[in-house]
Design a protein around this nucleic acid. Structure first.
Length: 505
DNA sequence: GTAGCAGGTACGAGAGTAGA
DNA sequence: TCTACTCTCGTACCTGCTAC
């Protein structure tokens, strides 16, 4: 009786939150017998398993949970925007660049940074050497196989969480959810071959259902778990934004949903994409690359007279038949620079290559794609970032991952990535005008100082030196600062020189 | 055509708060 | 008082809409 008295109202509340109808009479039997929970009212994951055996319908994937129209509009507008070529800002930049006087000829005769290196090696040779170096690095790393998690495993993991909650209720204990401290550097270790990685004995935090402070979060976690459960069952997809808009009053703000989704992903040890939560297309790719998507669609990113830019979507992980003659991959921080290099036909002019931009901080899809291409092609990957603390930060996210997503580092990082530019030492070496530079703000300086303390900086003495140069000069520079030298200095001089003479660190 | 704003993807740091 | 946790704010990048 005591069991029923305690569990009935709570289970009722719980089932409303979770959206899963649990047969109470069977539940109590399960509690006593230790058998699995009986869940009804929604399609059992067993039927999903059977569906998997029959083959999952593509149609289901094309029918997300909510806001399908809105997402399609966003993706469509992005496609159209890219297809027409330059963005508004990029066009503005081009107009500003007109009239820029080249200073390259003026620098002829001055002792060059490059001349210090004994005899310039050819582009192909230096790149091949770099590739061999990267291969040696990755060989020491862990397996690169990205495991695919089945729907039944995901549903099972969620059911285990619910079962633990119900078991606590049955024992007259307030249910508690245990989450990993994702933002704690103490839970992170640095491995040169992987990047930032979560340690096995990480610290956790408790989300108690009987504590006024954490109870709302406890409920929201269950709510989102139920959303994920249904999406996995029905093979539908949604963005975090979609989930937020499904009940804005309940969630309050998008950041609440963002945090909980990441917490759930970390708690279940299941990547976010496997939870059927995807991101709006953000990254773009162009260059010497073609592949076949999971549904058989052939995608050609090859740059030619008509620029072809492909948006990076959630299904990038399942691409096959990757064909490329590219000698290297160039990751560009900003979309404006990406567009400018496409205008200059950089992908074909120098040597066939692939260009990728994550438009600032990269989303998961872009990071997955970089990793996928690295695993598939084994060609050198270089980054072109602003010479400021945020540029370095973004590069580190590609190379070593982020703290909060360290539990997925194996699938997202490429430690072999090299910093091609814009290096703080380039600012003085190229004699970039002072008025093209920007003073470091106090926040920039704080960020730089905190980054210098990070574990991966210790094993990158060249990076450390560049950071020290930036800290000492108290100045930063955007990639666009190179246009103060000449309008096409970046694609005509800077990048070819860097690639030819191995100007990366 | 341009500027401003809202909203989208990320990230981290630090202040504030509640509980032990 | 200390610790753990949450929330806010700031950074980067972008697009789309609206008013002028």
């Amino acid at each position: 009786m005591a069991f029923r008295k305690f569990t009935s109202p709570l289970i009722s509340h719980l089932t409303v939150l979770v959206g899963i109808e649990i047969e109470q009479s069977r539940l109590s039997q399960c509690m006593l017998s230790g058998k699995s929970l009986v869940i009804k009212g929604v399609k059992s994951h067993w039927s999903v398993r059977k569906g998997e055996e029959r083959g999952v319908s593509q149609k289901g994937r094309e029918k997300p949970l909510v806001s399908q129209k809105g997402r399609e509009q966003r993706c469509q507008s992005a496609r159209v925007g890219k297809a027409i070529g330059l963005s508004e800002r990029a066009r503005k930049e081009v107009s500003v660049r007109r009239g820029g006087k080249s200073r390259w000829s003026a620098r002829k005769g001055r002792k060059s940074y490059w001349s210090v290196r004994k005899g310039g090696v050819s582009l192909l040779r230096s790149i091949k050497e770099a590739a061999r170096e990267e291969t040696r690095i990755v060989e020491t790393g862990p397996s690169n196989n990205i495991c695919q998690i089945t729907s039944s495993e995901i549903l099972g993991a969620i059911e285990n969480v619910i079962q633990d909650i119900v078991t606590s209720l049955a024992r007259n204990k307030a249910p508690v959810l245990t989450l990993v401290n994702r933002s704690d550097w103490g839970n992170i270790q640095f491995k040169d071959s992987v990047g930032l990685q979560m340690i096995s004995h990480y610290t956790t935090r408790k989300i108690k259902s009987d504590c006024p402070k954490s109870a709302p979060k406890f409920a929201l976690i269950l709510k989102i778990l139920s959303v994920i459960y249904k999406m996995v069952q029905n093979n539908t997809y949604a963005t975090k934004r979609d989930i937020y808009y499904s009940d804005t009053l309940l969630f309050g703000s998008q950041s609440v949903v963002d945090n909980i989704v990441n917490d759930i992903s970390c708690m279940l040890k299941i990547p976010r994409r496997s939870l059927h939560i995807l991101s709006t297309t953000k990254g773009c790719i162009a260059g010497n690359l073609s592949y076949t998507e999971e549904d058989g669609t052939k995608v050609n990113c090859t740059c030619s007279a008509t620029v072809c830019i492909t948006n990076i979507n959630i299904f990038i992980l399942n691409i096959k038949d990757v064909i490329t003659d590219a000698k290297f991959i160039l990751i560009v921080e900003k979309d404006a620079t990406f567009q400018r290099l496409l205008d200059d036909d950089f992908c074909n002019k120098l040597s066939p290559c692939i260009m990728i931009t994550g438009k600032g901080v990269p989303d998961l899809n872009t990071r997955l794609l970089v990793r996928k291409l690295w695993d598939t092609c084994h060609i050198p990957i270089f980054t072109l970032m602003d010479a400021d603390p945020h540029g370095i930060e973004i590069m580190c996210i590609y190379k070593y991952g982020s703290v909060s997503m360290s539990f997925e580092a194996h699938h997202l990082t490429v430690p072999a990535i090299r910093w091609l530019g814009l290096l703080p030492s380039d600012i003085e070496r190229l004699n970039i005008r002072k008025d093209a530079l920007i003073p470091l703000t106090k926040q920039d300086q704080n960020k730089l100082a905190s980054m210098q303390k990070r574990p991966y900086v210790a094993c990158q003495p060249m990076w450390k030196k560049e950071m020290e140069i930036m800290a000492a000069s108290k100045m930063k520079a955007e990639i666009q600062a190179l246009t103060s030298l000449s309008s096409d200095y970046l694609s005509r001089v800077y990048l070819p020189s860097k690639l030819q003479f191995g100007g990366w660190i």
